[in-house]
Amino acid sequence: MENYILPPEPLTNEAIAARLTTGARNGLANGSVKKKNLVYLELNGCSGNIISLLNGANPDFEYMIGSMVNLVYSNSLMAAEGEKAIERLMNALDEDYILAVEGAVALRDKGLYNIIGTWKGKPLTGLEAAKMLGEKASHILAVGACATHGGVSAARPNPSQSVGLQDVLPDKNMIKLPGCPVHPDWFLGTLAHILLYGDPDTDNLGRPLMFYSTLIHDRCPRRPFFDRGIFAEKLGDKTCLFKLGCRGPVTRTDCPTRQWNGHVNWPIGDDTPCIGCAQFGFPDAMAPFISYDTTRVVKDE
């Protein structure tokens, strides 16, 4: 009994946070942690992930571009436009960079369904940009449902023949951050991990375990209702939303504990079922998002 090994350092949240920030500051001071270039490419999507990113807190977007990376290209956020912007994209190829891609790659008609700019008078397709930048990137992050597996852009009938980024870069390692949109913490946390410690541990689908390892169902505050068979009949009910079509039992994210919009709430906390937006195959595989005509007997009202 006397051979207990006590933790050498205190394990309170404050102490751990202090250790992490001190470690990061020291790394920055002695040059072992470097500010890297980040190219944020938006392809066939809705810009939802960049909007979600702007909603980040602790760290926020300002901290990201100030202290973590040099954001060399982002078509939504950069000041340059037209060929000047694309020129910055081309110049990025000469240096080391991390590539983040949001949106799916449209394959139809050689990628002409998604043109991200013009270069030397010719249209630059998302397909060309994804291949060109993906080949030379030091790290690739597929951000959001569309980039990881096609997502909404590839939903039936998929008129632009959209696919996920891995389909056009089959031999490249990439970290996949599914979600529609991605939680700012999932993106910024993964980015920070790459800068400080290298690639994070991922599961067999390429998702970082630190954010995507736990089934929503297993951390759901309404789990006791599921276990007792007490189910919500309509949106707004405070019990288990399983019979309405909740996809929490098939979706792996930390939403129940992390929560959204500055960590204040999340869908189930607001009495609406999880639609499985961070599951591969979303949205087609997760439909229908809501069902009232289910295994429960419907009483005439």
Binding site: H217, V250, A285, T295
Partner: peptide, 25 residues
């Protein structure tokens, strides 16, 4: 909600992966 696999019929009414009697489409 019942489904068959390999000639056996299973009850998935309260199976957690079959919310609203649907499973990945």
């Amino acid at each position: 909600a019942y489904v068959a696999v390999g000639g056996v019929v299973y009850d998935v009414t309260n199976n957690r992966a079959w919310a609203a009697a649907t499973h990945f489409g």
